Computed example of a mutant assay.
Amino acid sequence: MTVSPYSSDLDLVELAERMSPFNPVSWYAEWKRIAEKNERLAEGFEKEGHKVTANEYYLRAARFYQRAVIYQSEGDPPMLPTFNKLIEMYKRAWQLVPPPFERLEIPFEGTTLPAYFSKPRGNPGQRFPTVYAFGGADSSLVGGGGGAYTSRGMAYLFLDGPGQGIPLRLKRVYAPPDSERVAKVVIDYLVSRPDVDPNRIGITGGSMGGYTAPRCASGDKRIRACSMSSGAYSLLEDIFEYYPPIQERLRWLIGAKDLADARKKIREFTLEGRAQQIECPMLIGYGKDDRIMDPQGAFRLYQAAVNSKRSMVAEMGHDVGRARPSPLRPPILADWMAKQLVPPS
Rank of each mutant, 00 (worst) to 15 (best):
T204P: 02
R215C: 10
I201Y: 08
W27E: 06
E17W: 11
P21H: 02
R60S: 14
V306T: 12
T111Y: 11
L253C: 13
A304E: 08
Y6W: 13
G209Q: 05
R274Q: 11
C216I: 09
D197F: 08
M154R: 12
G205R: 00
D335N: 14
F108Y: 06
E30Y: 03
S140P: 03
P198W: 11
G206E: 04
Y242E: 06
P295W: 12
N55F: 12
I166P: 00
A298R: 00
A232M: 15
A217C: 01
E56T: 14
P344I: 12
Y57C: 09
N23I: 12
Q276E: 15
R172G: 12
P325N: 02
S4P: 03
L235R: 07
R249K: 14
R300V: 11
C280F: 10
V131R: 05
A217I: 01
V13C: 06
L80V: 15
A148V: 09
P107N: 01
I254K: 01
E272G: 05
T212R: 11
M337Y: 02
W94C: 08
T111S: 14
A305Y: 03
M282N: 04
Q126F: 04
P343W: 00
T82I: 14
E88L: 15
R200C: 04
S311I: 13
A61N: 01
W336C: 02
Y65C: 02
K37E: 06
S140G: 10
P245K: 05
A16T: 03
K32F: 15
Y28T: 08
L104D: 00
I223W: 09
Y149N: 00
D220K: 06
D178K: 08
Y286H: 06
P214V: 00
C216E: 07
D178V: 12
W27N: 10
M19H: 05
